[in-house]
Design a protein around this nucleic acid. Structure first.
Length: 796
DNA sequence: GAAACGGCAC
């Protein structure tokens, strides 16, 4: 055997080894009589490690093992390192565990970093990573680096495991570790909370994290916060956020703006979304595929698919490639409008350009054909997608079930549901269908069955039940469910925002009484109403014509120390104006002005509308000029009311002069431009200008009407109440005929039918009827209906 | 390193 001294120099070993072919093994070295020292072996292994030859390290060490050459702690470290670098995390962990306490091997923190991050990121298994982290802290007393903690927090947040994310946060900020957390952590946690539907916790976290100046939020954290605010419907607060960011000198980017636009759209405001889009372009921020997709989706959902296609074309002209989501949004827009041929043309195009379809796009199409009642084609599409290997999930089945229910094929819907593992949506759909056909017992049984299947009824389920019972006149059962809904969700401890939204939903469904019952219950659970609570209730009371109640609530709100905003005053002013009660409206206008608040464009528009509805054009013009002198012009609708009113009276010159003023208003022009921000905006404005100059006022009005219907799809600005009312009348009559008479209800009638019917506002009557119907107060509804019909006969 | 987009029920 050769003497070892020959090899005491590792450089010799290295050169020998590197000169030899890759297949050269330790075995060969032994055969050639080389017996290296452990020190030289380690140096050699370090060399291999530095040259990234990790497989060779593993190979070499396994040779050492078979030759009973024992390594020391350095050898073990290099071996572990190599395993980790080769992503053999499980083996690395096993090895580290096996060495624990056996040798002097004590893995340094860098090895733990790699192991934990490996499980977390590469294996997508943060649970296992967390176990390693805990064991590391407990058994080795070594602290992985800050980024390791961050990766874990990110992964847990990404998966929505927020308990775990918080657990790591606690470990990270623990006395012994005391790592400060940065914007990476902050933004991840915020978005995690949003992901699990807890935006209020996200906001709380942001406030805590940045509260004591511990963390200066950057644009990413602010964007995450923005999303949380928007989820809570607090998109208005983003303006303050922007000011704060500007003060901090932060640079806005496309993600910030697209999140903001998304928030506006989700709030139902296309106009605001377009304003933000314009602002973004003005700031020199370029649109990308996602921001375009957000806009397209927003327009499609609001029934503006043509505009969405316009944006799509602009996007392509910008050199961007629409993706599957973009096209799905367009398809949804067409389906929503019943334009199935166009929807399928887009679908064909998607396949032609080689984009692979997925379940979303199929579910969208299936929903489209279901809404047309073509269930056969829906089943055909279902087969087609399965043929393509796209596995339908519960959402697609729910779409089919909903389609079957909508066409009255409830027993088939039931059959389909039995073949799958239904979720809360499946059962809510079936419940709705059963209520529709009046199958109360079946509905009740199904509802009971849900809990046996461990399906937790959510707010939609409860609303379906409550609404279903209400519509069938079964108020008692409805209230029972309502109480259960409250009794059930106690553990979740809904905050005031949840309550506000629920109250708003109840109001919108005409369940004002229930909304107020909820409002009254807030005190019992020590939950303070917010300004939004009052605003929501006042708004809905005014919309329903309960102006006295609205007024009292306003007083109550002031007593509680709130300062009502112009917006709240506007609700009341608008409410009185719509009923033609101009004196009361003026009183509130006066109150508004004396409380140091400024009337705004909505105030003046409501007042103008009030006078116009009464046919008092002098009054309307008087208000217009009065406010104009104060520098307050009406908004788009206010101008339109006035122009239309004057035109109806044949006062064409005055109408034209107001139109001219309208076309000089910056906000109005911005708004019109907004509608056509990408295509032919100049032409619309210039067309209006030339119509105005030609004196073609009626034509100009019809264009403005068109623009109005795009901008305010929900808000009524058309005087043609008839067509919108007829369907509701049909519904009301259907309910009325099936109702049981109840005289005592008549006696307790708190709704003054006579008063209502004196009003010329059909829209108001209609909302009364809808509200009474949904409360099951069918006789009262019938009264209003008859009054209304008799008025409509005499008026016409 | 992180923040933005899609389908079903009221």
């Amino acid at each position: 055997m050769f003497l070892f001294r020959s090899f005491s120099s590792s450089s010799f070993l290295l050169t020998s080894y590197s000169r030899l072919s890759k297949s050269v093994s330790l075995q060969t070295l032994f055969k050639r009589g080389f017996t290296p020292t452990l020190q030289s072996i380690n140096k050699f292994l370090i060399f291999l490690s530095r040259t990234q030859r990790f497989n060779s390290i593993i190979h070499f060490i396994s040779q050492m093992n078979s030759n009973q050459i024992k390594g020391n702690s350095q050898t073990h470290s290099i071996f572990t390192w190599a395993l980790l670098k080769l992503h053999k995390f499980e083996e690395a962990e096993d090895f580290m565990n096996s060495q624990m306490g056996k040798t002097s091997f004590s893995p340094n923190s860098r090895l733990f970093d790699l192991l934990i991050q490996g499980f977390c990121v590469k294996r997508n298994n943060p649970e296992r990573a967390l176990l390693v982290l805990k064991s590391c802290l407990r058994n080795y007393g070594t602290f992985p680096c800050s980024f390791t903690f961050c990766s874990l927090i990110y992964s847990f947040s990404y998966l929505g495991y927020m308990n775990r994310a918080v657990e790591v946060l606690e470990l990270m900020t623990d006395q012994n570790v005391k790592y400060p957390f940065d914007n990476f952590v902050c933004s991840s946690v915020i978005s995690g909370f949003c992901k699990i539907g807890k935006p209020e916790l996200a906001i709380g976290f942001f406030e805590n994290a940045t509260g004591l100046g511990a963390l200066r939020p950057n644009v990413v954290s602010f964007t995450a916060l923005l999303s949380a605010l928007c989820m809570l419907g607090r998109v208005n607060e983003v303006n303050d956020l922007v000011i704060r960011m500007e003060n901090e000198g932060l640079i806005f980017d496309v993600i910030f703006y697209s999140s903001w636009i998304y928030g506006c759209l989700r709030d139902g405001s296309l106009l605001e979304a377009l304003r933000k889009h314009r602002q973004m372009i003005e700031r020199g921020i370029k649109m990308d595929v996602i921001s375009y997709t957000i806009l397209i989706d927003g327009f499609s959902k609001e029934g503006q698919v043509e505009k969405a296609v316009g944006i799509l074309n602009k996007m392509i002209k910008d050199g961007l490639r629409p993706n599957l989501i973009t096209y799905t949004a367009i398809i949804l827009g067409f389906c929503k409008k019943g334009k199935l041929e166009e929807a399928f043309n887009v679908f064909k195009k998607v396949e032609d350009i080689g984009i692979v379809a997925d379940e979303f796009i199929y579910a969208t199409l299936i929903d489209g054909v279901c809404r047309r009642g073509d269930l056969d084609y829906a089943f055909h599409l279902l087969e087609e997608m399965e043929r393509k290997g796209i596995k339908p999930t519960i959402v697609t089945y729910n779409t089919i079930i909903n389609g079957l229910c909508k066409v009255g094929r409830t027993s088939e819907a039931d059959e389909v549901s039995k073949g799958i593992l239904g979720d809360v949506v499946t059962y809510s759909t079936l419940l709705h269908a059963l209520f529709m056909v009046g199958a109360l017992e079946d509905a009740h049984a199904l509802y009971q069955a849900m809990s046996e299947m461990d399906l937790v009824a959510n707010s939609v389920t409860y609303c379906t039940m409550i609404d279903g019972y209400c519509k069938l006149g079964r108020i008692e059962e409805a209230l029972e469910i309502f109480d259960e809904f409250r009794g059930r969700n106690r553990g979740i401890a809904p905050n005031i925002v949840t309550y506000n939204s629920l109250m708003n939903t109840l109001c919108r469904q005409g369940c004002l009484v229930e909304a107020f019952r909820l409002f009254d219950s807030l005190e019992k659970i020590h939950l303070a109403p917010s300004e939004v609570t009052y605003a929501t209730l006042i708004d809905n009371l005014c919309k329903e014509g309960f102006l006295l109640d609205a007024k009292q609530l306003l007083e109550r709100m002031v007593l509680k120390g709130f300062n009502p905003s112009t917006r709240i005053y506007n609700f009341l002013i608008d409410g009185y104006c719509k009923l033609g009660r101009m004196e009361e409206a003026s009183k509130f206008l006066h109150d508004l002005e004396t409380t140091c608040l400024k009337p705004d464009e909505f105030t003046v528009s409501s007042v103008i509308n009030g006078f116009c509805l009464k046919g008092d054009m002098e009054g309307a013009l008087g208000q217009f000029f009065k406010f104009k002198r104060q520098g307050i012009l009406p908004d788009f609708l206010g101008f339109l009311y006035l122009i239309r009113g004057l035109c109806t009276k044949g006062r064409m010159e005055e109408s034209r002069s107001i139109l001219r003023e309208m076309l000089q208003s910056k906000t109005v022009l911005e708004l019109i431009n907004g509608v056509d921000s990408e295509v032919e905006s100049e032409s619309v404005v210039s067309l209006l200008f030339s119509l105005c100059e030609q004196g073609s006022i009626r034509e100009a009005i019809s264009i403005l009407d068109e623009i109005g219907s795009i901008l305010f799809p929900v808000r009524s600005f058309s005087t043609d109440y008839g067509s919108r009312t007829s369907n509701k009348l049909y519904e009301c009559e259907a309910f009325t005929s099936s109702s049981k008479q109840n005289d005592s209800e008549m006696v307790e009638n708190s709704y003054n039918v006579g008063k209502i019917s004196q009003s010329l506002d059909f829209d108001f009557c209609y909302s009364q009827i809808a509200s009474l119907c949904s409360k099951g107060e069918l006789q009262k509804a019938n009264g209003v209906l008859k009054e209304m019909l008799s008025r409509s006969n005499t008026d016409s």
